[in-house]
């Protein structure tokens, strides 16, 4: 062991894209690897939980956690890593805001299990087996992690020092975050390590957005061939750039696809989805209620659209639940 700073990576409810993002640092990864000791990284390195438990408290300089929290195991692990780390970073939209898995908050465990294990068209489960936390087989009892009704962002479980936004975070932000950590030149606790201004500020197409935009029909990306120089909102595509933090360099828009909001809100916004919905609603070019309804019908999945990455972290958190939260 050297005395290089120790860094850990961990994943919770996530797709693996954030791990890819770390690898996407390409040559820069080598520089990071040379500067630090990676002491824990389940996706790449063979360390166990016991190795972490054996560390001193605060021994790790920084742990980057990606993924949302939806199982007891994930919660345990982040508490453990919190204890062992000087700095805990929510890495990516799921850890920061709940992410795509957070849309599960429109249902509860029972409904999710029923769909995933019993009723989905591709499921073949005649015995009706659903996940259990306690199971006996061949004379052995095994315990499995419990599954929460509600998906949580990392900061709803433990204290988070910084967040790197994105689905997934972009290499420039990761490099900057790592650089800041290693240099010790850190902003105030709680800062999201990206510009605190909306995406339009760095969008090449901003000047093409009219001041008096009136949308009479929302389009979906597959329905039109969008002009690649004009503001996508002006073309009826639902671009959430106005309600989304900058920092990605407007990459999606560069590929002629609208912003879906993965960088989350700016620090001044309490609820990205509500802000985005009201901003978009204000562009509806009609006064007649029936006409307004027709135009809004062009947004087939409002929650999935406006709260795609942040339902757990929104003011709503989840759909109203009549049952008391338990873990199965």
């Amino acid at each position: 062991m050297t005395d290089k700073p120790k860094v850990a990576f961990y994943w919770c409810a996530s797709c693996g894209g954030c791990e890819e993002a770390v690898v996407d640092l390409a040559e820069e990864l080598l520089g990071v690897a040379a500067a630090v000791d990676i002491v824990f990284w389940p996706v790449a390195l063979d360390f166990k939980r016991a190795d972490v438990e054996a560390m001193e408290d605060g021994e790790i300089l920084a742990t980057f956690v990606n993924g949302a929290i939806r199982t007891t195991e994930q919660e345990e692990m982040v508490h453990l890593l919190r204890k062992k780390s000087k700095v805990l970073v929510a890495f990516g939209a799921c850890a920061q805001l709940g992410g795509i898995p957070g849309l599960a908050n429109l249902w509860d465990r029972e409904a999710i299990f029923e769909r995933a294990y019993l009723t989905s068209p591709t499921t073949e489960n005649p015995a009706g087996t659903v996940p259990l936390t306690d199971y006996a087989a061949n004379g052995h009892r095994i315990q499995l992690p419990g599954f929460y009704d509600t998906v949580m962002s990392l900061d709803q479980v433990t204290q988070v020092d910084y967040a790197v936004p994105g689905c997934a975070p972009t290499p420039n932000l990761i490099a900057a975050a790592v650089g800041a950590l290693l240099s010790g030149d850190l902003p105030p606790l709680g800062t999201v390590l990206a510009p605190d201004v909306a995406l339009c500020s760095e969008c090449d197409r901003r000047d093409t957005k009219p001041e008096d935009l009136h949308i009479t029909a929302f389009k979906r990306p597959h329905e039109i061939i969008a002009d690649d120089e004009t503001c996508l909102l002006a073309q009826g595509l639902l671009c959430l750039g106005p309600a989304t933090r900058a920092g990605c360099g407007a990459q999606c828009i560069g590929a002629n696809m609208p912003c879906t909001g993965c960088f989350g809100p700016t620090s001044r916004v309490h609820d990205q989805g509500a802000k985005a919905a009201s901003a978009i609603a204000s562009l509806v070019g009609a006064d007649d209620p029936a006409e307004i309804e027709r135009i809004l019908d062009g947004i087939p999945d409002p929650i999935g659209t406006f709260y795609r990455y942040g339902l757990p972290h929104s003011l709503m958190v989840r759909r109203r639940q009549d049952t008391v939260e338990t873990t199965a």
């Binding site: 605190d196 201004v197 909306a198 901003r206 009219p210 001041e211 750039g241 700016t266």
Partner: peptide, 24 residues
């Protein structure tokens, strides 16, 4: 000003035409 992205959402919303878009 430093927080404004220049997205222009506000401009059409103002019932008093009090908002202008100047230099982004």
């Amino acid at each position: 000003a430093e927080d404004c992205s220049g997205c222009k959402t506000c401009i059409g919303m103002c019932p008093y035409q009090a908002i202008a878009h100047i230099d982004g």
